[in-house]
Amino acid sequence: MDGSAAPGDGAVPLVAFAGGGPSAALAAIALLRATTWLRLEYQVVVFDDHGRRGRGSDLHSAERLDLPARLLSAFPDRPAHLLEWARLSGLACTPATFLPRRVYGDYLEDTLSATAAWAAPYAALEVRSLRVASARAEEEGVAVQTGGAPSAVPARALVVATGDPHLRTPPLTTGRDPAEGLATCPRGALIGTGGRAERHLFAVGPVRRGARKDTVPHTRDHAERLAWLICDTVLRSRAADR
Rank of each mutant, 00 (worst) to 15 (best):
V144K: 02
L130R: 14
E109V: 07
V46T: 06
A30T: 00
A223D: 12
L108S: 13
D110T: 02
E109C: 06
D164Q: 09
A16W: 02
L65V: 00
E139D: 14
V46F: 04
D58Y: 01
D9W: 10
P206H: 11
D9C: 11
L72M: 15
L83C: 05
L26T: 14
A6V: 11
P171K: 02
T36A: 13
V46W: 08
P121K: 07
A149K: 00
G54F: 07
Y42K: 03
A86Y: 01
A137L: 15
V159M: 06
R196Y: 05
L99T: 10
A123T: 05
E41K: 12
P95C: 08
F47D: 04
P79L: 07
A183M: 06
E109H: 01
T146K: 06
G205K: 03
T115P: 12
F75R: 14
A189V: 00
P171N: 12
A123S: 11
L32P: 01
L14S: 03
G181C: 10
L172R: 06
L167D: 14
L167G: 15
A114M: 06
P150D: 15
R208K: 06
H50Y: 08
L229S: 11
P22W: 08
D241M: 09
G148H: 09
H50K: 13
V160L: 11
Q145V: 09
Y42P: 01
A223H: 05
V46G: 03
Y122C: 11
A27I: 01
L32N: 07
D106C: 11
K213T: 10
K213W: 08
R87F: 02
T115W: 09
A179E: 14
R64L: 13
A28L: 00
H222V: 00
R87C: 09
A28N: 05
G56S: 10
R78C: 06
T115L: 03
L67V: 06
G147C: 06
E139S: 09
V159C: 11
G20F: 11
I29P: 05
W228A: 13
V44G: 10
G56Y: 12
P150M: 13
H166E: 05
A80K: 10
C93Y: 12
L91N: 05
L172G: 10
T146N: 03
A114E: 12
R225L: 13
R168V: 09
Y107T: 01
T193I: 06
A74P: 04
D232Q: 15
A189N: 07
Q43V: 05
T111R: 15
T233I: 04
V45Y: 05
P154V: 01
F98W: 12
A11C: 10
A161N: 07
T111C: 08
V160H: 09
L112F: 05
L125M: 05
R236S: 12
A80H: 12
V160M: 04
T35L: 08
L235E: 11
P76K: 00
H200G: 08
D77E: 08
D110W: 09
L32A: 03
C93D: 14
R55G: 04
P79A: 11
V46K: 02
D106R: 15
L71T: 02
V153G: 04
G105Y: 02
